[in-house]
Design a binder for these strands. Sequence first.
DNA 1: TCGTATTTTGACCATATGGTCAACATTTTG
DNA 2: CAAAATGTTGACCATATGGTCAAAATACGA
Lengths: 217, 217
Amino acid sequence: MPAPDRKRTRIQAENEDRIVSKSLDVFSKYGYRGSTVDQIAAAAGMSKANVLYYFKSKNDIYLAVLEGTLEIWLNPLTELDAEGDALLEIQRYIQVKLKLSRTSPAASRLFANEILQGAPMIGPYLKTELKELVDSKVAILTKWMKQGEIKTFEPVHLLFLIWSTTQHYADFAIQISALDSSPKSKLYKDAENFLDSVLIEGLKGPKYSGVVGSDEY
Amino acid sequence: MPAPDRKRTRIQAENEDRIVSKSLDVFSKYGYRGSTVDQIAAAAGMSKANVLYYFKSKNDIYLAVLEGTLEIWLNPLTELDAEGDALLEIQRYIQVKLKLSRTSPAASRLFANEILQGAPMIGPYLKTELKELVDSKVAILTKWMKQGEIKTFEPVHLLFLIWSTTQHYADFAIQISALDSSPKSKLYKDAENFLDSVLIEGLKGPKYSGVVGSDEY
DNA sequence: TCGTATTTTGACCATATGGTCAACATTTTG
DNA sequence: CAAAATGTTGACCATATGGTCAAAATACGA
């Protein structure tokens, strides 16, 4: 077995990383149950026995992949800044999520699969860490509402909308490509234009209504 | 085997319907690969051998479930009426899709699973029938844009937005319930209020800008 | 270069799963 | 009510799959 605690050897580091990296592709494509250790081994270019030499079980690989991706995937929300301009902050968040959807569709699909199956692994995480993060951001949205920067509604739903619309381009890519033949670059540009213009306009609060040029107070 | 072509007996009708109905729950929860014929048999309250007496294979059951659900799920789009008021039509479509998401979450998850796995079964359908339907509705949206009823953007993205946001409440229900403890009724009411107000405002075309009360010409 | 630690894998095992079949049970029909 | 048709299932089979293990190959420090 790999050393119990000692620092990783060069080969360990390489192989463990390769297994995690390649198995993301496999898990995101077929889900946990639909993925086999043989597939992962083939993707990583080694024998099944060797894969299980580095990770005790298929489940352990899955956990490593989830952990390695979770932070990257959910990080952008952290940066929603209470001090920034509401509409600009939201716009930026949408842009970052869209870019992530384009550059890391596998990560998106991995989570989509996990949640669809009832979040057997990350369920606890959702109720604790993610909930805390979301609560703190909901507070920011509420503040912006009170300041008239954005209109009033139940704040979480804006997060749900941003998540669902942006991740849709990764999770439902097959359907999208069946319905729209534009190249990926145009598709994402159009998506951004659409979401930006509709949301920015649709979210504007009382501060912006009536007198057009009004600013502060 | 069941009669080759002859009309279904009472028992055939009952059992086939029960198998399809119950296996929707199973397939939507675990995906195709994650569902077993034993699970389906248990859910339908009969032996595995009997299930396979009515359906030649697991795949055949899956096809029957997909077929039986597809129409219901995609039907509302058909009703988007070119002659109706743009914003009202869109609003109604959102409402219907949201209601469907609430009342038939299993159907939504079934398709989400199918698409996530690369649409191995309904891929061809997406490229033909669904594409045709979408193209025709995109034409309607384009018309509304030219008439100034809604602002100008790449029309498919509005469909993507409506699909993703409404289905999100079914597909990601576990995550939503981890983040928001409101009862389902409030959740969906809030979702509808939010989507309505943001989208209706965000979609308004030139016809509505400037002079507030202007109506036709 | 030698000896030890690490790495790699083919062969193997136990279990799960899709599917078949012959025997038995029930329903339908004349 | 008896024969034919239909329905039901336990036992069984072949394959797939997660995981183990001992032996062989390789890397590496002294």
